[in-house]
Write a protein that binds this DNA or RNA. Sequence first.
DNA 1: ATGAAAATGATAACTATTACTATTTTAGTA
DNA 2: TACTAAAATAGTAATAGTTATCATTTTCAT
Lengths: 128, 128
Amino acid sequence: MRTKRSVQKEAIIEYLKSVDTHPNADEIYDNVRKKVPDISLGTVYRNLKKMTQSGEILRIGFDDGGGRFDGNPKPHYHFNCVKCLRVYDIKIPYIDELDERISKITENSIHGHTLMFRGVCKNCKSKD
Amino acid sequence: MRTKRSVQKEAIIEYLKSVDTHPNADEIYDNVRKKVPDISLGTVYRNLKKMTQSGEILRIGFDDGGGRFDGNPKPHYHFNCVKCLRVYDIKIPYIDELDERISKITENSIHGHTLMFRGVCKNCKSKD
DNA sequence: ATGAAAATGATAACTATTACTATTTTAGTA
DNA sequence: TACTAAAATAGTAATAGTTATCATTTTCAT
């Protein structure tokens, strides 16, 4: 299935690359609608799914529910504030040694890992 | 709200402690019904939620969908096979230094982290 | 044994996501 | 530039997982 371009798809990517807030499908829908007013939510989901499968974007599985998306497909880490629920990028390099270590111990083929920190962010701490 | 015991709740815990398969709510429901035939699915969800919030069990957020539960509340790591979709426990100690490192870099309060490896498990590899 | 608080079963409701389908758009080719 | 098959879309229905509601039952301190 040779993929074809569409203004909808490109608007979604453009929006995702422009933010670092890790929006969910609804937030993406609301924002992309500003540029493409009659895009449908189904189109947003369809494209998010394809782009996730092709590795163009990342889907962040959340311990308590719906998916969030990240326009940066390079593996990196996240921090989830339990108060404001925001997800922040963590700026440390990907730790290859973890994969190597688990690969040796388990004899599984390790493709990668996801690492999510949890706690209270700087901003929320100062609001006490 | 002083919590009270119930046979349903105790059957759920007992089942969860007896397996290491990280079942989802439906699998828990099906199995607990063998001992408590007329338990309802809502009761299963209600108890899983409460126990997760109290820290008695763990909920494992899955990158592609529903929640799975782990009767072992001690933080530990997981491996998710992309072929058979099973979730295995990874037997390495929790890495406190990660939390300390991120704590220093971000000035957030770090409560902990979750680490999920992804790949093809030994069993599935041998089936090729 | 009593009664207030908590838990339950049954069902409805809700949220996130996917499937369906008729129509529109894309892009390769004449 | 017009033609056409494949791909993508909008709109809507359907599904899956989960939570809410509420009348009834169970728990447990007194």
